[in-house]
Design a protein around this nucleic acid. Structure first.
Lengths: 264, 264
DNA sequence: ATGTCTTTGTGAACGCGTGCACAAAGATGG
DNA sequence: CCATCTTTGTGCACGCGTTCACAAAGACAT
């Protein structure tokens, strides 16, 4: 799971719960597949199975959008595809910039799932002059000096950050200052942004750590009870005299995280 | 946000809530950064700010692990790093295989965040014979014919799927049959797995779609009220005579999704 | 030793999300 | 036109997660 929204604590935007919004793309994908097989209608049961969710949940989700089903029959596939697309804002074109063209940035640039959903890679941006002009996935990389100009000219409102963690906040600041109001962050850092800007983050290592937790549980289910096998349990240490004030200069935050996503 | 667990509906594993488990890696990252700056202790307030969460939430999260703080002082950084690492199972070595070495698979193979958290890339596997033997991120790619052998020999229990959507379920089945019990799925498909196997998925395009939803809302906040600007609202269509049975052959599911993550 | 000050740990209230179960709606057949 | 059958849409209850607010615990100064 890529996690967390940032601001907008629980403000269900106009009656559509966040949890529902997060599932709409799932339904859309399943519906698109059905559409390509020319299936005219689906029941909530079938569609729920295809999307991997509960059918009651799916019906309730759709009920937030309106009454688009027909009792005794199901949902019209094409119509539902359109309605969900419209609700998600995919009927319009969304120019996107990707900043940080390392391995990950390059993978994102070539990802087919974007274009097919109305997202258009407007520009690839990297700080390395050696990258400038080199085509990645058919798009020439531009230097980060031109970041503001690119965003302004193309009217970009969505930015993807695939830089090393150390520079992610700076990049974020520049994107926001230039007019970007939605950011997808792949750098392992907590970004701070002003109100009105949405941030979603994807941290690959976090997902693995969650899996490891469950894996460990499965392994230790019927084994050694609780005795610490590793060497040093380290008893609760004697606290130092003065608590470190940890004078953090403003909001620069914990940028210097260990590994960078990409050496860019 | 990478989303969703699959099975184990809400079974809080041994008293630690899922939501808390999902945040532990976040705390660990912030603590590691502090540790590298040789900060001896942190208050819940400071650490919460660094991790981007509420301080009360953080304290409650830690309370599930035990009473590791000192009132009036805060938490000992090193000790907490150790405790969280142990809880997440990061004190042991986790061999991981990555299947599907396209752009994304290659990016994952070179991702520094894995090794530093106790994850070791045991093998890279791809179905393309042309890839076999070629080193990616210093690790030679092996052919998928040897998948079962590799998993058995290395005792791999965690698999990463970065293949095109069309083959993800087959790959998943082979991984599970070979003994893998945790899967991180990057392919845009719903994987079906037997009980006891954990699946987490990361869908890049879903994250963007969620951002687009909020972006659209922000844009249309004070504009045209509800009148559909796009061309075809498509009135609720006249339903066909017979509902399509959509005879789905078993659980193969909606594999043929539009774009593949990687042409591998 | 006593008082003050800081910070943890948690009881309790609240809100969101989920899932059950069923009534209403419509299709279909006679 | 009526009966039956399917499937939606939703009222309701329950449980998890979040947040507030505060008492208890310990550090520190005098």
């Amino acid at each position: 799971m890529a996690t967390g929204r940032t601001h907008r604590p629980a403000t269900r935007s106009r009656g559509i719960p966040e949890a529902t919004v997060a599932r709409l793309p799932l339904y859309l994908r399943a519906l698109t597949a059905l559409s390509e097989r020319s299936v005219p209608t689906v029941s909530s049961e079938e569609l729920a199975a295809a999307a991997g969710v509960n059918s009651a949940k799916l019906r309730k989700d759709f009920s937030y959008l309106g009454s688009y089903g027909t009792r005794g029959v199901g949902y019209d596939v094409e119509y539902l595809v359109y309605q969900i697309s419209r609700e998600l804002g995919l009927t319009q074109d969304w120019p996107v910039v990707i900043v940080g063209i390392g391995n990950l940035g390059a993978a994102l640039a070539g990802y087919g799932g974007f274009a097919s959903r109305g997202f258009r890679v407007a520009a690839l941006i990297d700080a390395d002059p050696a990258m400038t002009g080199r085509p990645v996935a058919g798009i020439p990389v531009q230097h980060s000096d031109d970041l503001e100009k690119i965003i302004a000219e193309d009217g970009v409102s969505i930015g993807v950050i695939a830089t090393p963690a150390g520079v992610a906040q700076q990049v974020c600041d520049r994107l926001v200052a230039a007019g970007v109001t939605s950011i997808l962050n792949f750098a392992p850092t907590v970004l701070s942004v002003p109100d009105g800007v949405d941030v979603r983050k994807v941290d690959l290592s976090i997902e693995l750590q969650i899996l490891a937790f469950h894996e460990q549980r499965k392994a230790g289910e019927e084994a050694g009870a609780d005795s610490a096998r590793p060497a040093a349990p380290v008893p609760p240490p004697a606290p130092r005299a003065t608590a470190a004030p940890a004078a953090d200069g403003g909001r620069k935050g914990p940028d210097g995280d260990v590994p960078a996503v990409m050496p860019a």
